[in-house]
Amino acid sequence: MELMPKEFFKKPPLELARELLGCELIKETSEGTASGYIVETEAYIGAVDKAAHSYNYKRTKRTEVMFGEAGHAYTYVMHTHCLVNVVAGEVGEPEAILIRAVEPLRGVELMYERRGDKKEKDLTNGPGKLTKALGIMKADYGHPYGKSPLYIADGFTPEHISTGPRVGIDNSGEARNFPWRFWVTGNTFVSR
């Protein structure tokens, strides 16, 4: 396992969203380590993206990490689920990549303990499901990937990548149609 260097994250979000596919997302907890290959992502570009929390450079306590250095975790609670993002791009540009799904790799038994008696494909095939399965919490906000307990490491290179509109952002005007969701074509752990 080779951790992704800081420079890996300093890319435009549409590029990073593709390059995260196949990388391994890892979370260490007192219960053990769980990980999965990232198989679905969504890019959010705050300056122009009405679906982004940081649209039009909106700076709040919640979005503050998005204005900082790339390669940090942006976590927040949506409804009852914690969601995890990777901050992308340049300092001052509020951009991030939502991790929507992972293919379980390590700690699968621990994932079952956390998620209950599910089919394996349902353990991590959604942004709230994967954070619960891996043990990622709101407290991981601002944490740099590559420093315990949260890591992104190399994995595999997808043969084919599909792209389409993002999910669950119907109230965001024209931004709902942006084809900024990326997934490993044919992977059974993709959310939809």
Score class of each variant (00 low, 15 high):
Glu113Pro: 05
Thr185Phe: 13
Val87Pro: 00
Arg181Cys: 04
Thr185Met: 08
His160Asp: 15
Thr60Trp: 12
Glu19Ala: 03
Met4Lys: 14
Thr163Phe: 08
Met4Tyr: 06
Phe8Asn: 02
Tyr37Ser: 15
Glu103Asn: 13
Tyr145Trp: 11
Tyr44His: 02
Gly164Thr: 01
Asp49Phe: 10
Lys119Trp: 03
Pro94Tyr: 09
Pro179Lys: 13
Ile26Asn: 08
Leu98Cys: 10
Gly146Val: 00
Val87Asn: 09
Trp183Ile: 05
Thr185Pro: 01
Glu42Asp: 10
Val86Phe: 05
Lys147Asp: 15
Asp154Cys: 03
Glu64Pro: 00
Phe182Ser: 01
Pro5Arg: 13
Ala88Glu: 00
Leu110Gly: 03
Thr188Cys: 11
Glu95Gln: 08
Phe178Ser: 02
Asn177Gln: 08
Thr157Val: 14
His143Met: 10
Ala43Ser: 13
Gly164His: 00
Ala52His: 03
Ala175Asn: 01
Ile161Phe: 09
Thr131Asp: 05
Lys61Gly: 01
Pro144Asn: 08
Ser191Trp: 12
Glu28Lys: 02
Lys121Leu: 09
Thr60Ile: 04
Ile136Leu: 12
Ala175Ile: 11
Gly126Gln: 07
His81Gly: 06
Val167Tyr: 11
Val108Met: 10
Gly36Ile: 07
Tyr55Gly: 00
Glu90Leu: 10
Gly126Pro: 02
Arg106Ile: 08
Met111His: 02
Lys118Trp: 10
Gly22Tyr: 04
Glu69Ala: 14
Gly89Leu: 14
Arg106His: 12
Ile38His: 11
Val108Arg: 06
Met78Ala: 08
Gly142Ser: 02
Cys82Trp: 01
Ala88Trp: 02
Cys23Asp: 02
Leu123Asp: 00
Tyr145Val: 01
Asp49Met: 13
Glu31Gln: 15
Pro144Ser: 12
Ala52Tyr: 14
Gly126Thr: 11
Ser162His: 06
Cys82Tyr: 01
Gly164Glu: 10
Lys147His: 11
Met4His: 03
Glu159Phe: 06
Tyr57Arg: 09
Ala153Ile: 00
Ile38Lys: 13
Ala139Cys: 06
Tyr44Gln: 03
Leu150Tyr: 04
Thr29Ser: 12
Lys129Met: 13
Ile136Met: 03
Ser148Trp: 10
Arg100Ser: 07
Met78Cys: 07
Ala153Lys: 14
Lys6Asn: 09
Leu110Ser: 04
Ala175Arg: 01
Gly32Ser: 05
Tyr112Asp: 04
Glu93Leu: 05
Gly128Pro: 00
Asp117Arg: 04
Lys61Val: 07
Glu103Asp: 08
Thr33Met: 10
Gly142Phe: 01
Gly168Met: 08
Ala96Glu: 04
Arg181Leu: 14
Thr41Ile: 10
Trp183Thr: 07
Leu130Asp: 04
Met78Trp: 07
Thr29Phe: 13
His79Ser: 08
Tyr74Phe: 02
Tyr37Phe: 15
Glu109Ala: 13
Ile26Arg: 14
Phe9Ala: 06
Met78Ser: 12
Ile169Val: 13
Leu98Thr: 01
Pro13Leu: 04
